[in-house]
Lab assay of single mutants.
Amino acid sequence: TFYNFIMGFQNDNTPFGILAEHVSEDKAFPRLEERHQVIRAYVMSNYTDHQLIETTNRAISLYMANL
Rank of each mutant, 00 (worst) to 15 (best):
H50L: 13
A59H: 11
H36Q: 08
R58H: 10
N66R: 09
Y63V: 02
R35G: 07
H36R: 05
I39M: 03
Y42E: 02
I18W: 13
N57R: 09
T1D: 05
G8M: 13
N4W: 09
Y42H: 04
Y42G: 00
E25M: 15
F9L: 04
Y3D: 00
K27A: 12
L62F: 06
H50I: 14
T55A: 11
T56I: 14
D26E: 03
R58N: 09
H22P: 02
I39L: 05
L62S: 05
I39V: 08
V43C: 07
I6N: 00
P30L: 05
R58K: 12
A59E: 03
Y63F: 12
L52F: 05
S45V: 08
I18K: 14
A28G: 13
M44N: 09
H22E: 04
T56E: 03
V38L: 09
N66V: 13
N4Y: 10
A65V: 09
Y63N: 01
H22V: 14
N11K: 10
L62K: 06
P15T: 07
M7V: 06
V38H: 07
F2C: 04
L19E: 02
L19I: 04
Y42C: 02
Y47A: 02
Q51T: 13
I53G: 03
S24M: 14
E25C: 12
Q37S: 12
Y47M: 04
T48H: 11
M7F: 03
N66I: 14
Q10N: 07
L52R: 01
L67A: 12
T1A: 07
A20Y: 06
D12V: 07
Y42D: 04
P30A: 03
T14C: 06
H22W: 12
R31K: 09
F29V: 01
T1L: 06
Y63S: 02
N66H: 15
M7C: 05
T56Q: 02
S61G: 10
E21V: 14
M44F: 08
N57A: 09
Y42T: 02
V38C: 12
N4H: 11
I60H: 01
N13A: 09
P15S: 10
M7A: 04
K27H: 10
N11I: 05
G8Y: 07
N11C: 10
R58Q: 12
G17Q: 06
A65I: 11
Y3W: 07
H50R: 13
N13G: 14
N4G: 11
M64P: 01
A20E: 02
L19D: 01
L67G: 10
N11L: 07
P30I: 06
F16G: 01
F5D: 00
L62G: 03
L52W: 05
L67K: 13
H22L: 10
Q51I: 13
L19G: 02
E34R: 14
E54A: 10
G8I: 07
N57C: 11
R35E: 08
A59Q: 02
F16R: 01
N13W: 06
Y42A: 02
R58D: 08
D26A: 02
V43M: 11
E33A: 08
P15K: 07
G17C: 04
D26K: 03
N11V: 05
L32R: 10
P15G: 07
